[in-house]
Nucleic acid binder design. Sequence first.
DNA 1: GAGTACGAAATCGTATACGATAACTATGAC
DNA 2: GTCATAGTTATCGTATACGATTTCGTACTC
Lengths: 224, 224
Amino acid sequence: MTETAVGSKSEQAYAAVKARIVEGTYTPGYRLVLAKIAEDLGVSVVPVREAIRRLEAEGLVKFERNVGATVSGIDPTEYLYTMQTLSIIEGAATALSAPLIGAVDIARARAVNAEMRDCLEHFDPVRFTALNQDFHSVLFEHCPNPHILDLVHRGWNRLASIRASTFRFVPGRAQESVKEHEALLQLIESNADADTIEQAARRHRSATLDAYLAQSNAGSVSAH
Amino acid sequence: MTETAVGSKSEQAYAAVKARIVEGTYTPGYRLVLAKIAEDLGVSVVPVREAIRRLEAEGLVKFERNVGATVSGIDPTEYLYTMQTLSIIEGAATALSAPLIGAVDIARARAVNAEMRDCLEHFDPVRFTALNQDFHSVLFEHCPNPHILDLVHRGWNRLASIRASTFRFVPGRAQESVKEHEALLQLIESNADADTIEQAARRHRSATLDAYLAQSNAGSVSAH
DNA sequence: GAGTACGAAATCGTATACGATAACTATGAC
DNA sequence: GTCATAGTTATCGTATACGATTTCGTACTC
């Protein structure tokens, strides 16, 4: 979105590797060799190492001493942890943001949601995922607590390494998601109390997790 | 508590600097010069730099490009953000842990809480703070979601750099805190539903924040 | 006397180099 | 044919070195 100025080379390496993970160039399990990345980016290994460690702290890569780094995988347990945490954080973030969301924001979110509906008809999971992020960004961008906002972003980055996870794991869930978006907007519009909004936002996320778990127990995922 | 094996020098530096911050050897605003720390620890600057960056990610130090690192300060705004986030995370962590807390844990927590009461009478804020951490550790140690547990710990570390903040900022709050601990234990014992426990735990933290804010508005803090 | 410009010192940022560790491969014994 | 073992290779971990940037002090000007 915003074109960050190329600060240090470490920053540059961080952004580059992160982008490759989020975009899917580096898929889960991909082996990140410091020297190789350094050469690709035209920098030395030191800033690359720093970037990798930073990505490790965010959970995007796994780092093993004297062995190396790999892009974090789609471990179902890890997915559960991330989704559960995200449902809590997003619930709070939405509740805190709600009073600061204006009519203009609502309209914008609604437009995005309409596009998401279109994506369902034309079956465009990639764009759907991107729009979903836009939708929630509108809700969160006014969040008065930057720590919470940061946690939301971290969770999203982690999920991004599992691209279009909703579509991949739980077909049919997306339709419900779009409906819940509208319900959320109406709650915010009507100045519902914070608890109500928090619960709704939280359930919006955990419903996806529940759907995944249900499918998982049915056996169609364990075959992975 | 647990004696972690001295892994890499980077790890070593991280633990050492972190300890100095949490203990209060390095007070907020303290200037962290890489070369100096490196010499103190008998390692080179590279692992020290890595340790500092890691501490920065956790919010314990502030790092400015080409300038250096300083221990993060007691900015009231930052305090608010941290406490608010922690109230949300702790609420969830307690609710998730509750079903896994046994009678032995409850007894242990109760013993700690009794000691805390003693600390109030003998006015021992340092020990009180340490015991407070123990109390909540008992509640959290069974938390089934490691991500959430990690976030709790990060929040606590951040607060630790503001030592005995409760006592310092809001005298009288500690007495209430001890009572709330007992109430929490009774809720858990009686297998109260998750929402009730979550709300109680959340309020336990936010009450401290509210008390601080009330005092702050009264003007006795703005003189800082 | 105040403000500005220049220069020196301190500190960070990164490259390069080398030692340490783990993964891999090939060889030999059973 | 399989397993154990030694040697080789790949990669990480850290030290050292140097260039880049900022900060501080000093001298000069108005």
